[in-house]
Amino acid sequence: MLLDVIQGTENGGFVIIQDTVECCGRQLLQSCIAAALHREEDVHVLAFEVCEEDVRLRLDRKCEQRLCVHNGYTDPLGWSEHPLFTVHQFISEELNVHLSGSEESKPATLVIDSLSWILRHHPPAVVCQRLQELRRGGALRRVVALLHCDLHQQGIVGSLCHLATAVISVVPGDRGQQAVAKTTRRTKSGKVTHEEEYFSVKEDLTVTVESRPSHHGRPQTEEDEREVDPAANLTFNLRLSEGEKEAKEKLSLPFVFSAEKKSALLQPRPGSGRIVYDPDASDDFDPEDPDDDLAV
């Protein structure tokens, strides 16, 4: 599932890559940029946390002409007289002006590095609203954003992830340089799927999925595979002996009637009553449809 999200098999998606101080997700973000460039898409990067040289690092030189980096790293707050790009320009109208340089025949991908920087200077509700406006604008094929989830309250992280079609949470693994990607994807029909995978990023920014972790990364042992007996260490006995089983089979239950008791109960006895119903003229009774009054 991780490779499907990075390769962008669905149009109009919004992907959030969550990381923490323990495990960085910027390499996956770079892999998304490289994959979009190889799909011959125009890629626009809002760079607030790294410089333009770091964004272009390890990317294919043949595809760099389709990459446009909006430098918000040099002067993110617009303190100089002529800032290149500021955090206050995170408005759908402003971004559409910057995205208008793309060829109309090609789809464009917007990469935000990172949403955490934007959340420091915009209210969460405003950020969610502007992300929705960008997705509805039609000028973008995809939006990919990096989010440092340990810097924000869980409610803010949950609200942003609720807007996303796919969320990749990067956590450290137990296999050296490998990390674990916990991917949650929501399809257009509303179906939600989850998957955990070990992955590694190569020098050319391609992602390799190694395996799926078992028991949160702990290898499964033979003791885990053995069937556990739930009645092994109880202070009372849940099993019956052979004698108890025979006595149970011979026991006559009060609600089970024998053949003799059934025939005795069904035989008519003298003095037994009967219920006779004689409809009068006011009764609306149809003999061909006796259940007419039930409306079935």
Rank of each mutant, 00 (worst) to 15 (best):
R269E: 14
Q7M: 08
T221E: 09
L37W: 05
I33L: 05
G13H: 03
D224T: 03
A125H: 08
V15E: 03
R212A: 12
A34N: 00
V126M: 11
D289Q: 12
L146E: 06
R269A: 11
Q154C: 07
V126W: 08
A232E: 15
A232W: 04
A181Y: 04
T183Q: 01
C68G: 02
L265H: 06
G78D: 07
F199N: 02
E41P: 03
S100P: 07
G243Q: 14
S114W: 07
P219C: 08
S252G: 07
V21N: 06
Q30P: 00
N237M: 11
L115S: 02
E197Q: 15
E104R: 07
D229G: 00
Q177N: 10
V111C: 07
E133S: 10
E41W: 03
V209C: 11
E40M: 00
H121D: 05
H194L: 09
E53G: 03
G72V: 06
E49R: 10
S258I: 07
L160F: 00
Q30K: 13
C68L: 14
E225F: 06
R226W: 05
H216D: 14
D278S: 11
Q89G: 09
R120Q: 13
C149E: 15
Y73E: 05
E22G: 03
R141C: 01
V69K: 06
C63A: 13
S114H: 02
Q65L: 08
I168G: 04
R212S: 15
E222W: 08
E197N: 08
S263Q: 13
W117Q: 10
S241E: 10
V171A: 10
A36G: 10
Q220A: 11
H82G: 03
V50L: 08
E222M: 08
V111L: 06
R141V: 00
S80R: 12
P230L: 15
V45L: 01
V97T: 13
Y198E: 04
V21P: 02
S105D: 14
G273K: 14
P268T: 12
E225Y: 06
V69T: 09
F199S: 04
T193V: 13
D113K: 00
N11I: 03
R120N: 11
P219Q: 14
L77H: 11
I33K: 00
Q30H: 15
A181V: 04
V256Q: 13
W117T: 15
L46Q: 05
S80I: 10
V157S: 03
P290F: 04
R274S: 14
L147Y: 06
H148Y: 08
G137I: 03
K261D: 14
T86F: 07
E52A: 13
L140N: 05
L2R: 02
V192T: 13
R26G: 00
D42M: 04
N11P: 01
E223Y: 03
D42N: 11
I112E: 05
Y73V: 00
I112V: 15
L57F: 13
L115I: 01
E40R: 10
A232L: 12
I156V: 15
V143A: 02
S272K: 07
A179I: 07
L28E: 07
N11Y: 00
H121N: 13
L265K: 11
T235F: 07
S258A: 08
